[in-house]
Design a protein around this nucleic acid. Structure first.
Ligand SMILES: [Mn+2]
Ligand SMILES: [Mn+2]
Ligand SMILES: [Mn+2]
Ligand SMILES: [Mn+2]
Lengths: 155, 155
DNA sequence: TATCAAATGTAGCTTTAGCTACACTTCTGC
DNA sequence: GCAGAAGTGTAGCTAAAGCTACATTTGATA
């Protein structure tokens, strides 16, 4: 049904099929995406705990721009995932694991914003785009970003 | 329930509430994400049409690493959105709108990969991360990327 | 031309993420 | 101490994106 001549040649040459490579990349993107929401929640809850001493579902909801019912359901998912704790009507807290994740996520967020600014992206666009981009930056890419920023003349 | 003194001062100073700004950013990220899958499908279908002359659901599925049933359902969504056409058992094609989107998406994808490479990200990480990052790059950021690459010494 | 493998499509299930509407606590102010 | 507002939680809906299992169509080939 399809011409296979070239494909066979490539496989014989030891390359792994391009389709598999592409499928693996898309798969990585999908799993990064499935963690993105939890990352944002954890980062935000940590912010609220630091600045307010408490993190209430309503505050989380307002900052994210979703209904409080949605926020509460996602917070339940955080608890199931072992990232958060808290008793009914008593606010949300982070487990140790949640705190570790929050720290990593915040660091990565800052680094992404800094890179965008260094590339000349306007401040508001940098902040807005970083909110989505951050979840798709691998460790290897993160290292490259850090090194690039270090190697710059600091202002 | 919360101390409001500082907040009121900021509002009186003419700043719009930080919560709203943050909520708007998260909202942008959510809508970018909801378009991401369609963008990848359209780009991939265009690839297949160019290289094979046809785009079959099975090929789309294999390249994306999902089941053919999933691919078919998403392709139905593309048709509903006016991006694709095609009759049962006869392959998928792109509408004019779909072709225009594919062109934009491919250009943006290349630019993101190029920027990552320019920043010293290893090739495979650049390709993999770009697959997710691309969907969160605004026009303003895209312009900054293009300008940054132009202003480089070309090798 | 009849067969049969591959491709395509359909059905039905799960999880996630959003919403509105309603019910129940908590806490503040009087 | 109580009333009412604010916050929290639950129920029930939709749509997306994934899956497996099964049914149907196409088309290559014997
Ligand atoms: Mn984010
Ligand atoms: Mn963030
Ligand atoms: Mn992509
Ligand atoms: Mn792409």
């Amino acid at each position: 049904m399809q011409p296979k001549a070239k494909k066979k040649a490539a496989e014989l040459a030891g390359e792994l099929p391009a389709e598999l490579t592409q499928a693996r990349r898309f798969g990585k993107t999908r799993s990064a995406q499935s963690g993105a929401l939890l990352e944002d929640y954890v980062e935000l809850i940590d912010d609220l705990l630091t600045s307010n001493g408490e993190a209430r579902p309503t505050d989380v909801a307002r900052r994210l721009g979703v209904s409080h019912a949605t926020a509460i359901k996602t917070i339940a998912r955080l608890k199931r995932a072992g990232l958060a704790t808290g008793r009914p009507y008593r606010g949300v807290f982070l487990t140790q694991e949640g705190q570790k994740l929050a720290a990593r996520v915040r660091m990565r967020h800052r680094l992404v914003v800094d890179i965008l600014l260094a590339l000349g992206v306007p401040a508001e666009a940098a902040e807005a785009d970083a909110e989505g981009i951050e979840h798709h930056v691998s460790d290897a890419t993160l290292r490259a970003f850090a090194q690039f920023l270090e190697s710059r003349v600091p202002s």
